[in-house]
Every structure is written in structure tokens, then in C-alpha cells.
């Protein structure tokens, strides 16, 4: 059923092709998550704001980016970006300028992940004990110092499990970037399958690689969470 030599690395083997796709998937998802973290932090701040206007802005963002299909959002950025950049390029006499697929993909998945990351950050922020922030105020720490030394480290620790979920979600969403032609794993599987007409082989291979990526990510986050939980763990024998 599956000719394994086709998955190999030798002549006529597509192994390297697929692995390159897997690497691209990881890279584009990582960039997407960074973009999402920045935007997500801003959206979380908006949602926690005392001003109603900001809260509405934040809520609107999450409603749109969690309610509208991811594919549609990627089309928006791809075709919309295409139009904008093409027009921009025309100003300089450069016709046919199109947005790099990587950027479209990273921004698209990034903006989507931002709405989930915002919820994670918001929950983590509210979980930071008010008493600890008060102690920092009582010590004379300025707002910036409190934020940097007390709030950010705590929010980061509490966010880890939620961010693990967002990572997994984004890893799978990244398959949709294939519609832009970016050479990530889905696209590579598609090209290999179309080229050899061995659709089953290559979609299974691609699927297996995705499973490897998600399983490894699961492990990595598990390790990170355990390390961070060291300070949460209950007392080791009360004195």
C-alpha cells in the first residue's frame, strides 16, 4: 500500500521535502505565536482596562477573531494584503508585487491566536494575588517596577498551560496557510501527493509528521509546566 522508498531521502524520495515542510510549519507557527503574544497582551490589557471604550475594543477583537472561520481570515490577509501591497508597489512602478506567503501566514495565524492568548493572559493576570501586588506597592515599588518584577513573572507562570493549548491550536491552524502556497508541511504533502498521484501515502505521511509535532510539543510543555510548578507545590512538611 505504501512504497516506503518514496518517503526516503534518496533519489526520487520525498522525505527531505516533507521534513523541510515540517520545519517550515514550526517556524511559521513560532512567529505567529510571537505576533499573537504581543497583540494578545494588548487585547488583554484593553479588556482589563477601567475605560469602557477599551473593553469594548478588546471584546470586539475576540468576538471577531474567534467567531469568524480561520480560513476566511487568511483569505482576508492574503487577498486583502495582496491588494494593498500591489497598490503600494504600483506607486513605485513595481507591478506584480505580492505579499510574502510567510508573512501572510504568520500574521493570519498570529492574529487568531492573539484572541486566545488574550483570554489566557487575562485569566492569569486576575489570578495574581492582589495581596502580592499590594505588598509591592507598600514597599514603594513604582508601577513599572511592580509590573516588571511581580506581575509579568507571575502572569507568565500561570499562562503556561493555556499557552500550551494555544500552541497546539496554532500548529494545526498553520495547515491552512497552505492556501497561500507557503511550503509548509500541508502544502508539501499536497505537492508530493499531486506529483506522484499517491495521495494516500503522502497525506498519511504528512498526518504522521503533524502527530509527531503535536506529541513532541505536548512533552515539551509538560516539562516546562513541571519546572514552573515547583514553587506552587504544597508544603514539604509543615514545621
Amino acid at each position: 500500500m505504501i512504497d516506503f522508498s518514496l518517503l526516503g531521502f534518496g533519489q526520487g524520495g520525498w522525505g527531505a521535502w516533507l521534513l523541510a515542510g515540517a520545519v517550515m510549519t514550526l517556524v511559521v507557527t513560532l512567529c505567529a505565536l510571537f505576533i499573537g503574544a504581543v497583540v494578545g497582551a494588548l487585547v488583554a490589557a484593553a479588556k482589563l482596562s477601567k475605560r469602557r471604550l477599551w473593553r469594548v475594543v478588546g471584546d470586539t477583537y475576540t468576538t471577531i477573531f474567534r467567531g469568524v472561520p480561520e480560513l476566511l481570515i487568511i483569505y482576508l490577509i492574503y487577498f486583502g494584503g495582496s491588494g494593498a501591497i500591489g497598490a503600494f508597489g504600483n506607486l513605485f512602478g513595481n507591478k506584480g508585487l505580492s505579499p510574502p506567503a510567510f508573512l501572510v501566514g504568520a500574521v493570519g495565524v498570529g492574529l487568531i491566536s492573539a484572541s486566545y492568548q488574550a483570554e489566557v493572559f487575562r485569566g492569569s493576570f486576575m489570578a495574581v494575588a492582589a495581596g502580592e501586588i499590594e505588598a509591592a506597592r507598600a514597599l514603594g515599588m513604582s508601577r513599572l517596577l511592580r509590573f516588571r518584577r511581580i506581575i509579568v513573572p507571575q502572569v507568565w507562570r500561570f499562562s503556561l498551560p493555556g499557552l500550551g493549548n494555544v500552541w497546539q491550536l496554532s500548529l494545526k491552524d498553520s495547515a491552512l496557510i497552505s492556501v497561500t502556497g507557503l511550503a509548509e508541511l500541508m502544502r508539501q504533502s499536497q505537492v508530493a501527493a499531486g506529483s506522484t498521484h499517491l495521495y494516500f501515502t503522502f497525506y498519511v505521511a504528512g498526518g504522521v509528521l503533524y502527530l509527531v509535532l503535536t506529541a513532541l510539543s505536548d512533552r515539551a510543555f509538560g516539562v516546562a509546566e513541571r519546572r514552573v510548578a515547583r514553587s506552587f507545590r504544597g508544603s514539604l512538611g509543615r514545621g
Binding site: A175, L176, M186, A193, H197, Y199, F200, T201, Y203, L211
Partner: peptide, 21 residues
């Protein structure tokens, strides 16, 4: 594990193109 760990898109293509092979 399989259906939660892989993208829906590749599952769909596998079923639509792959199995039809």
C-alpha cells in the same frame, strides 16, 4: 490522539483524495 493531534484539513484531504485512490 490521531483526530485531535492532526489538522482537520489533512484529514479531509486524506479522506477525499487519498482513500479514493
Amino acid at each position: 490522539f490521531v483526530f485531535r493531534g492532526s489538522p482537520l484539513l489533512i484529514q479531509m484531504f486524506l479522506l477525499y483524495y487519498g482513500v479514493a485512490q
